[in-house]
Amino acid sequence: MFAEVDGRRVHYRVTGTGPPVVLLHGLGRSLEDWEPLRAALPGYRLLAIDLAGFGHSHPLPEPRLDSLAGHVMRTLDALDVTRAVHVVGNSLGGAVAMRLAADNPDRVASLALANSAGFGRRVTWALRVLDLPLLWRLLLRPDERTARSTELSLFYDPAFATPERVALAHELSQRPEAARTLRRVAAGLGSIRGVHPGWRRDLLMAMARLGIPTLVAWGTHDRILPAGHLINAAAALPQAHTHLFSRTGHMPQIERAEQFAALLTRFWDGLEAGPPPDTAASSRTPPAVLTTGLGDGWDHRELNRHR
């Protein structure tokens, strides 16, 4: 389905009934990344949006983090979604979700951030080199081998880089302005040195002040944004719930769809139940990092090496 927002086409998909949940994808991706989670998460009205300039949505003149978040909010207005929503964001979508919450706290009931940008400097070299003037054109040139390599980098289990996902990634990479939009967004967030500290610091300070209920989840084997960023997230947002998925890459919503859906449901159910009786005592103790199945040789200290 499509809506017109500020004179630009926005691609979105709505399914289900219940409390509204907005799903925001990562850099260079599309709303298709939420399909496995959608099937595993009944009982909610799920609204997945192609961010401006990605998927099948038209680009913005200035694709910055704040403009992307503002465009999502205006899309919600255009779709008559006026009550506070749960927002789930992956990678870039997590940073957009935080910016959306910081700018419109009364419109966001909670945040769930999966392998989210914004919690550390380290990022894959493939995004750092987009800062180089000529090389980015070569790296972002539409090519099936590049699409397959990119898909493989997103998952711990290569079986998730299916021919269908590779074909979709190749198709979307051929859209006019796709490469330029990706590069411009990436350049606003980081450089050859890694993710810029300024916007991260300002955004996390705003989030800490607001205290919006937040869940941060990560995969142990993320090759895009390393799992050590989860420690940074727990330090920056001490009241956030954190969760670490074993043998999982950059997209737990695909690779661990059922477990992620169960995690979200428990998180949202806990919000409806309200705070524990001794709120003051609980506020002094930040939630612990939860782990699932880490008895597979994964050393928890490894997180510290990848911050």
Rank of each mutant, 00 (worst) to 15 (best):
P275D: 07
F260L: 13
L127S: 08
P163M: 09
L230E: 00
R256I: 03
S191P: 02
R200Y: 03
S283Y: 12
G293D: 15
W125C: 10
E258P: 11
A159M: 13
T220S: 14
T214V: 08
D103S: 10
A235N: 15
A206Y: 05
R128V: 06
A217E: 05
R165F: 06
G120H: 03
G270M: 07
R266M: 11
W125E: 14
R148T: 15
S91M: 05
L113S: 00
I192D: 11
I49D: 03
D106L: 11
V87W: 00
A3N: 10
G118Q: 00
V195T: 09
P19E: 09
A3F: 06
H71W: 12
N104C: 07
A281F: 12
G89E: 02
E258A: 15
G198L: 15
L244V: 05
M73N: 12
S30H: 09
E255S: 05
M98T: 03
D157Q: 07
L31W: 06
P42E: 04
I49C: 04
G93Y: 04
T75M: 04
V289P: 05
F260N: 01
A169N: 13
M98V: 02
E258T: 13
H229V: 09
W34C: 02
P277A: 12
A126G: 14
G94R: 00
L100D: 00
E164F: 10
A159G: 14
M98F: 09
G198M: 11
G120R: 00
S110V: 00
R128D: 05
W34L: 02
N104L: 07
A102F: 01
D33A: 11
R29L: 12
A84Q: 02
L113I: 02
A206E: 09
T214D: 03
R209P: 10
A236M: 04
R183L: 10
W218E: 00
A78D: 05
